[in-house]
Simulated assay, not measured.
Amino acid sequence: MHSSAEIRTIDGKQVVKIEITRGSRRPYHLASKGMKPSSVFVRHETSASAASDEAIRQMIIESDGTQYESMRCINQSLTFHETTQLFEAEGLAFEATQQRTLGIINSDNYYTNLGQLLADQCEHSIKAARYSLFLTVSCFLFSRH
């Protein structure tokens, strides 16, 4: 966060004015609770209220952009038991280093939406197919009569 403080005289009294500007990695939240309304608050003048799921999503978009896979996932309590087993079956490591390389964890150590797609908590069906492609090039000669 970026902040500044100064002493001002207002009505003959010295007061401390503290100004805090908006940071770039919103939403700010309690790490122990994750990015959900019970731990993300929106300030309105002198009061604060819980942020809605939509407000949280908008703050993530403003901070991370709109590339779905690299955006921070709202659920930061992900597990990867099944994915780890699949990697191990292929003789591949699936530790934090590999998860960062693959984009499952971002540079701020948050899980991304790509991570959610590979997590045990994924609610989506993912289907993939692998095809062998044989390219046949045929040349045809056409003649005009």
Rank of each mutant, 00 (worst) to 15 (best):
E6M: 13
A55V: 07
S138T: 15
P37R: 07
H145T: 10
T46N: 09
I126W: 04
F142V: 14
G23M: 08
R57E: 09
Q67A: 06
E69M: 07
E45F: 10
H145M: 08
S77F: 15
G103S: 02
C122L: 03
F80Q: 03
I105N: 00
D53G: 03
T83R: 06
Q67F: 00
Y28V: 12
H2A: 12
I61F: 04
S32H: 10
S4H: 14
G34T: 03
N109A: 10
A89F: 04
S52W: 05
N106H: 02
T21R: 14
G65Y: 00
I7T: 14
L133Y: 04
E95A: 11
A51N: 01
G91A: 00
L78M: 05
K33E: 14
L102D: 08
A5S: 15
N75Y: 05
E19Q: 15
I105W: 01
E95L: 07
A51P: 02
Q67G: 00
V42C: 06
G34W: 07
G34C: 13
A50P: 09
F87V: 08
T136M: 06
E123Y: 01
C73G: 03
A51S: 08
T79H: 06
S4C: 13
M1L: 12
F142G: 10
E19M: 11
A55K: 09
T79Q: 04
Y28N: 11
L92T: 02
G91E: 01
L92P: 05
R22D: 14
T46E: 06
E19P: 01
H145D: 11
N75W: 05
I61C: 00
T79C: 03
R57G: 10
D64N: 12
L92I: 10
Q99Y: 07
F134R: 13
E82Q: 13
S132R: 15
N75L: 06
M35I: 12
T83W: 04
N113G: 00
M59V: 02
T84L: 02
M1P: 09
I10F: 08
R25C: 10
G12H: 07
S24K: 15
A93H: 12
T136F: 05
S77C: 13
